[in-house]
Design a protein around this nucleic acid. Sequence first.
DNA 1: TCTAAAACTATAGTCATTCTGGATTTGTCG
DNA 2: CGACAAATCCAGAATGACTATAGTTTTAGA
Lengths: 191, 191
Amino acid sequence: MVMTTGRRERKKAQTRKALADAAVRLFAEHGYDGVTVAQIAEAADVSIATLFAHVPDGKEALIFDDGAGRGDRLARAVRERPPGEPVPRALRRCLAAGGPFAGDLPPELRRKRDLIVNTPALRAYSRTLWIAGEPALAAAIAAESGQDPSGMAVRALARYVLEIPELAGAEPDPLAAMHAIFDLLEPGWPG
Amino acid sequence: MVMTTGRRERKKAQTRKALADAAVRLFAEHGYDGVTVAQIAEAADVSIATLFAHVPDGKEALIFDDGAGRGDRLARAVRERPPGEPVPRALRRCLAAGGPFAGDLPPELRRKRDLIVNTPALRAYSRTLWIAGEPALAAAIAAESGQDPSGMAVRALARYVLEIPELAGAEPDPLAAMHAIFDLLEPGWPG
DNA sequence: TCTAAAACTATAGTCATTCTGGATTTGTCG
DNA sequence: CGACAAATCCAGAATGACTATAGTTTTAGA
């Protein structure tokens, strides 16, 4: 019996959000290295042990409370794209919509995005979140082009696409940079 | 006056090597996480403070004593390739010669390579060493194709090439995997 | 209400890394 | 040679992330 809306789950999500909010605020104020996990736990009014129970992946994971499913979104975009649309175009669309490429964000999210882009530890962790979706994306691409999902060509393609945010995110014009990379990858695209 | 062969430099290199040797041996015996830097310092007969003076980048950097210049080798391979040879072919040759792709290595080096490939922390650090050569490789590629060295297309190309070792290094046939990736990148290659 | 799982906490570790402050060694120059 | 400055070394303490333990509170569900 999975009661997804029990008080327990609600409190859990609430605490997780309090931790993420405290982390974003404090990081923005004092910088990532200028804040200790003890201070974040204090600000969220929980013990350090509880903090790590909620965020087992550690300090860098604190601000990423909105699920890890970044890479998986791309796989879904491929699978559910309009019929006839080429795979790379679907990927361009999906990438452009989120992550570092979205044009106008609420100031709160913009601050968070800048924080990630400008903090090496957070950028690196963000990359691992994206890359975790590699098998899913490789499977989706392979299904469309009739290739082996574990073959190197498909795997590399998935990896290269998933690394675009980190590669283009810090450019003056991230969106243009993203398209430039796709223009590079598309000629070799299978199928 | 830079006396490159003074006793000081010699002792320094000697200690650095002792640390690297002790680290490789202990890591191979007990695994990366099964060894503390204190044990490595002990085995090399130096204090912990001295260990960090020799290896400021920390535990992962211990076994990489042979200069960081991996990525730079690729840039040189491009610049000094035989006249008329396409850039990608020169890169294939250079990559195939070293890193995880070399066929027959002395058992000592093979053990070290397996250690790196099978240890996430070491693999990640190895990647940062490769990637550090991105600007140099991008400059070399740009010079050949008459493009802007800081343009996204060239930068992405350099990055993607430098990530081949991490991407293909763990495959059953690393060399074949490497060539598969180049077959993917070459159609979009500029110039 | 009763019970067992889940969540919370304080406390005490372990480990990597940095800092401090002083000793020792080495290159150089008079 | 002998002294001086720089580089090197070291013990020891401190910081900070993270883990392990063991006991307390809260909640879900019968």
